[in-house]
Simulated scan of single mutants.
Amino acid sequence: MRTLTGGLLSLEFDRSTVTRVRHLVTVSAHEAGLDGMALEDFVLAVHEAVTNAVRYGTPPRDITLYREKSSLVCEVSDSGPGIPPEALDKDAATTRFDFGGRGLWLMNRLADLSVRTGPRGTVIRLCVLLV
């Protein structure tokens, strides 16, 4: 794992480091200026992206946390097969899956979400304003 200046992160992760990544995101986002419910919501959204990358993606899996103007941005990427088109409706809580399937919906409620996905992998970008 490696960290960048200013308390921001750039690291590769796997199943064994998910808890450590959540801790590092919490500390880094707090140092960047998030606190209270905004911090909790952002960390939950990032954790959802990280666990989805572990569950559905393939290595390498990376997370990068950085400031962009007055925002805090987190990008989670993997080299998996991409997200199926039917799962990309981030505006509707999905009920078509027996288990799961609500991650994008949740991330979209907790942060500004954008998704780039295809047969060579996925990048989830989560962004929140720093006030």
Rank of each mutant, 00 (worst) to 15 (best):
Lys90Met: 15
Glu12Thr: 11
Ser70Phe: 08
Arg15Phe: 06
Trp105Glu: 02
Leu126Ala: 07
Val76Trp: 09
Ala111Asp: 07
Glu31Asp: 14
Asp78Gly: 01
Thr122Glu: 08
Gly103Ala: 13
Gly82Ala: 04
Asp35Pro: 00
Pro119Ser: 14
Val123Met: 03
Val21Met: 10
Asp89Lys: 11
Leu9Cys: 03
Glu75Gly: 01
Val54Met: 04
Leu88Pro: 06
Ser70Lys: 14
Gly103Phe: 04
Ala32Met: 10
Val21Pro: 09
Tyr56Arg: 06
Val123Asp: 01
Ser71Pro: 00
Cys74Met: 07
Ser70Met: 07
Leu110Asn: 10
Leu24Ile: 00
Val18Leu: 02
Ala45Pro: 07
Gly121Asp: 02
Ala49Phe: 11
Ala45His: 04
Phe42His: 08
Ala45Gly: 12
Gly101Lys: 06
Asp14Gln: 04
Arg120Leu: 10
Gly101Ile: 05
Glu75Val: 11
Val73Asn: 02
Asp112Phe: 02
Val115Lys: 06
Asp91Val: 02
Pro84Thr: 02
Pro81Val: 12
Gly101Ala: 04
Leu130Ser: 08
Arg55Tyr: 11
Val46Ala: 10
Phe97Glu: 12
Glu40Lys: 13
His47Pro: 00
Lys69Trp: 06
Gly7Tyr: 06
Thr17Pro: 02
Val115His: 08
Phe42Gly: 11
Leu44Pro: 00
Arg96Pro: 00
Ala87Glu: 13
Glu75Ser: 07
Val76Cys: 09
Val123Gly: 00
Thr94Gly: 15
Glu86Trp: 11
His23Trp: 11
Ile124Leu: 15
Thr26Glu: 15
Ala92Pro: 00
Thr95Lys: 08
Phe42Val: 03
Gly100His: 07
Gly82Lys: 04
Val50Pro: 09
Leu34Cys: 10
Thr64Phe: 05
Thr26Leu: 13
Met1Thr: 01
Phe13Tyr: 08
Tyr66Asp: 08
Ala38Cys: 00
Glu40Ala: 15
Leu126Ile: 05
Val115Met: 06
Pro81Ser: 13
Ser70Asn: 15
Gly6Tyr: 03
Arg125Gln: 10
Val18Ile: 12
Thr122Cys: 05
Gly7Ala: 12
Val25Cys: 11
Asp62Lys: 13
Met107Lys: 13
Asp62Gln: 13
Thr5Cys: 05
Ser28Ala: 15
Arg102Tyr: 09
Val128Ala: 05
Val50Cys: 12
Gly82Phe: 06
Ala29Gln: 01
Ser28Val: 03
Gly101Ser: 03
Arg120Val: 02
Trp105Ile: 04
Val21Lys: 10
Cys127Tyr: 00
Ile63Gln: 01
Ala38Pro: 05
Glu40Thr: 14
Ala49Arg: 09
Gly6Ser: 09
Ser28Met: 05
Val46Ile: 05
Gly82Ile: 02
Ser16Asp: 14
Asn52His: 14
Val76Phe: 09
Thr94Cys: 14
Glu68Phe: 05
Leu4Met: 13
Thr19Pro: 01
Val25Gly: 10
Arg55Leu: 14
Ile124Thr: 12
Asp98Tyr: 07
Gly121Arg: 02
Met1Arg: 02
Leu129Ala: 15
Phe99Val: 15
Thr17Gly: 08
Glu12His: 05
